[in-house]
Write a protein that binds this DNA or RNA. Structure first.
Length: 472
RNA sequence: GCCCGCUUAGCUCAGCGGUUAGAGCAUCUGGCUGUUAACCAGAGGGUCGCAGGUUCGAAUCCUGCAGCGGGCGCCA
């Protein structure tokens, strides 16, 4: 966790957070922030001032003797930004420990109450999505974005402390990692007049790269190339999927963490994934108790209990085959009946996590036919060494696998699926020269943030969301 | 992509075939010995999403469209 900025004064000015950590009672000071609410009585007005550094507000008392009531009533509405000076006074008999007794203030920016969309009441998350540019003024989004920031730091800390190299895989790529996913194409060709060959094919030699280019859907393939030199690497960056998924769990632009480790088999990788997730939960509980308490009170009463429970439980590991048996013996009426070889539906995953296990579940060894080409074939020749981590309330947070490191197996899989060999030449090279068993996984940042914040829609855990038909 | 639901004041919602469409909060005006989602009194504020249709009469029923939300699929 970063040190409080107060330690770096005078380079950094003090925030309300600093004030609450070490209040200079009896001293004169200036505080700057935004007005959350104002209450006016005959002789004095009270402000709740917030500055984004903490969810707590500072109560400011403005005496109408010193500052005209008309000025206060015309300027200090919810959302106005001010600098206010006075003495910090203890108030042991009041709900708050101290308040600022103002001597004067400077108005930086007013907020016309007839036009300013935010009010002191709670707004719906749906309404706030329509004003994503103003959401950061609310405590809810301050809490969420602070947790997002902290968790991003914790992700780096976890891997850096363990000798993983942070690698930057390209955003612009020539290939589709998963083979079949929908990509955003990137081009500088004029859309009104796309150059074509006589047979109608697009003349990509005139495009920027001289070939088709896309936004990456995953850094995994490049991550593997780097891991087969550096040993243990991780990526952490944005990824893009042009799938028309209209759900609370999908974004067109989202952040993904993808570690890739040479000389790791599936079991070691599942251990790492579980340890990593618990680390993130512990980190959040330790560093964001104020934010969690707020979010729990507002949105998800069970939030703290869920985090504690997930942190303490051993994730239940089930092979796909075991999971199918459990589902078939469950006596539950599912909309989609299961048989060996069918992909698990959301209802099946929910049953396994929420009813059967009642804790996070790791499913592994999936049928080869329903998984990606690069996953390592198991000796049974029917399954591949893949795993998913399923969480209560939010479903899949991690998908991973041991990668196929045997050249012949990988080559024949690529050919079987009719994929373009040329595109995967470099990838295949890592199997031709000094190939090693290796594994990795992908964690969706927004997915884990749903779990950590109690939110239920990924649009609410990213500052500006991109989803089909929506650019906040 | 398929299915379901919602859309009424700035916000959250009630009204679900029958006077002039309501409430709370917000706003404005006034009041209040220090408030804590302050309180009290009063006022303003509506093309009932849009376009058609049924009806003596539509916010209310029907159709289409749009936006939003949710479920499924796909996945992180």
């Amino acid at each position: 966790m970063a040190k409080p900025p107060g330690l770096y004064a005078p380079i950094l000015r003090e925030t309300l957070s600093d004030l609450y950590k070490n209040p200079p009672l009896g001293e004169k000071l200036t505080v700057k922030g935004w007005v959350r609410t104002r209450r006016t009585t005959r002789a004095v007005s009270f402000l709740e001032l917030q500055d984004g550094s903490t969810l707590r507000a500072l109560q400011v008392v403005l005496s109408h003797n010193l500052i005209p009531r008309e000025r206060i009533e015309s300027e200090l509405h919810t959302g106005a930004s001010i600098g206010v000076w006075g003495e910090l006074t203890p108030t042991p008999e009041r709900p708050q420990p101290f308040e600022l007794v103002a001597e004067g203030y400077e108005l930086y920016g007013s907020a016309d109450p007839e036009a300013y969309p935010l009010q002191k009441k709670t707004h719906s998350l749906e309404f706030l999505r329509e004003i994503a540019h103003l959401r950061p003024r609310t405590r809810t989004f301050q809490a969420i974005f602070r947790i997002r920031s902290g968790i991003s730091f914790a992700i780096h800390q976890y891997f850096q402390e363990r000798g993983f190299v942070y690698v930057h895989t390209p955003i612009l790529t020539p290939s589709d990692c998963e083979g079949g996913g929908q990509l955003f194409q990137v081009t500088t060709l004029p859309l009104q007049q796309i150059p074509t060959h006589p047979d109608g094919r697009v003349a990509y030699e005139y495009d920027f790269f001289g070939r088709p280019a896309y936004l990456t859907v995953s850094g995994q393939l490049e991550g593997e190339l780097l891991a087969t030199g550096l040993g243990r690497i991780y990526t952490f960056g944005p990824t893009f999927r042009a799938e028309p998924s209209h759900t609370p769990r999908h974004l067109a632009e989202f952040w993904m963490i993808e570690p890739e480790m040479a000389f790791y088999d599936l079991s070691m990788t599942m251990d790492l994934a579980e340890d990593f997730l618990k680390y993130l939960i512990r980190y959040t509980l330790r560093n964001f108790s104020e934010e969690l308490a707020f979010l729990a009170e507002r949105y998800e009463p069970l939030l703290l209990a869920e985090l504690e429970h997930a942190k303490e439980s051993a994730f239940l590991r089930l092979s796909y085959t075991e999971a199918i048996e459990i589902l078939q013996k469950s006596g539950k009426e599912f909309q989609f009946p299961t048989h060996w070889g069918s992909d698990l539906q959301a209802e099946h995953e929910r049953y396994l996590v929420e009813e059967y296990a009642q804790r996070p579940v790791i499913l592994y060894d999936y049928p080869k036919a329903i998984k990606a080409f690069y996953m390592r074939q198991n000796p049974d020749e029917k399954t591949v060494a893949a795993f998913d981590v399923l969480f209560p309330r939010i479903g899949e947070v991690i998908g991973g696998s041991q990668r196929e490191e045997r050249y012949e197996y990988l080559l024949s899989r690529i050919q079987e699926l009719g994929m373009d060999l040329f595109t995967y030449e470099n990838y295949l090279d890592t199997r031709r020269f000094g190939t090693v068993p290796h594994s990795g996984f992908g964690l969706g940042l927004e997915r884990i943030l749903l779990f950590l914040t109690g939110m239920t829609n990924v649009r609410d855990v990213v500052p500006f969301f991109r989803a089909p038909g929506q650019m906040a």
